Simulated scan of single mutants.
Amino acid sequence: MSTAPSQPRFEPARIIIVMGVSSSGKSTIGAALGRALHAPFLDGDQYHPEANVEKMRAGIPLTDADRWPWLDALSAALKQAAARKGVAVGACSALKKTYRDFITEKAGEPVLFVYLDGSREVIGERMARRSHEYMPTSLLDSQFATLEVPDAAQEHVMAVPVTDSVDKIVRTVTGTLEHLKTFKRWQ
């Protein structure tokens, strides 16, 4: 009999959201996960209203009031994509529990959040090396200040270290999604 811990089992979810602070790798991991699952990938950045983009571009952190319309639009698009294809993957910071609860409520079904867990130092180094259309490095501290680290005991979340390779993270996530192994990839 093995004494190794078993893989966590997650409630079947057709919507998977890769979450974390800016520069944690949400878009990269989300796109790779979408390819692995032959599922549509929706990048949350594409659903921000122009006013949000301009605030971030100016180095002004978003407020809850700024985020609700964005979360609503992304949630609706993910729900529609999952209804059409049977599964959908999204990238969204989902920094607060209330945001994650809102997305799940709007979906009307379980949503698995894949939390890209990394230190301020590691993510700060990543952010300094990349160029983003509207997310300056000055906003990283506000991202960490807003982040409510998801609690796997209370939320439908899987934490993975940002220091793992893209392939390893995708294998880790897909390895826990037993219900998607029979997904009809040709749909």
Rank of each mutant, 00 (worst) to 15 (best):
A13S: 15
K55C: 01
D66C: 00
M158E: 05
T174E: 10
D66I: 02
S27R: 06
G175Y: 13
T163M: 13
K85D: 07
R130Y: 06
P5M: 14
A153H: 10
D64T: 09
T163Q: 14
T172P: 07
G175S: 07
S165M: 06
Q187I: 14
W186T: 15
A107R: 11
Q143G: 06
S27N: 07
R14Q: 07
E121D: 08
D64W: 15
T98Q: 15
P61D: 09
T182E: 12
W70S: 13
R171A: 15
S93F: 04
V18C: 01
D167N: 12
V111K: 11
S22L: 08
S6D: 13
K85I: 03
A152N: 01
E121V: 03
I60M: 04
T146C: 06
D164Q: 15
L78G: 01
E105S: 14
L33M: 09
G90L: 00
L112D: 00
D101A: 11
P61R: 12
I16V: 12
G175P: 04
D164H: 15
S23K: 03
P12G: 08
L95T: 09
K168C: 06
A145H: 03
V166N: 01
A153I: 11
D72P: 01
D64G: 03
A39N: 04
M19T: 07
V53N: 08
P61V: 02
V157S: 09
L37G: 01
V21D: 01
P12M: 09
V162A: 01
D64E: 10
L62N: 06
N52L: 04
A128F: 07
C92V: 02
N52K: 05
A4N: 10
R9P: 01
Q80D: 10
V114P: 05
D167Y: 09
A4P: 05
V21C: 14
L116I: 04
V89N: 00
R130H: 11
S165K: 10
D117G: 08
L147T: 03
T137V: 12
P49D: 13
I169K: 09
M1W: 09
S119C: 02
D72V: 04
L139R: 10
Y47I: 00
T28E: 07
K96R: 05
K26Y: 05
Q7F: 12
V149M: 05
T174G: 05
S6H: 13
W70L: 14
V160H: 10
K79A: 13
R84W: 08
A145Q: 09
A83L: 14
E133W: 13
S93I: 03
P40N: 02
T28M: 03
P110T: 05
R185V: 12
A107Y: 11
L180F: 04
L177S: 03
L139C: 04
H38F: 07
A51L: 11
I15E: 06
M135C: 00
E11L: 15
P12H: 13
L62G: 05
L147F: 09
V18M: 04
I17E: 02
L140E: 03
G90R: 00
P12T: 09
K181Q: 06
V162G: 04
V149I: 08
G118R: 06
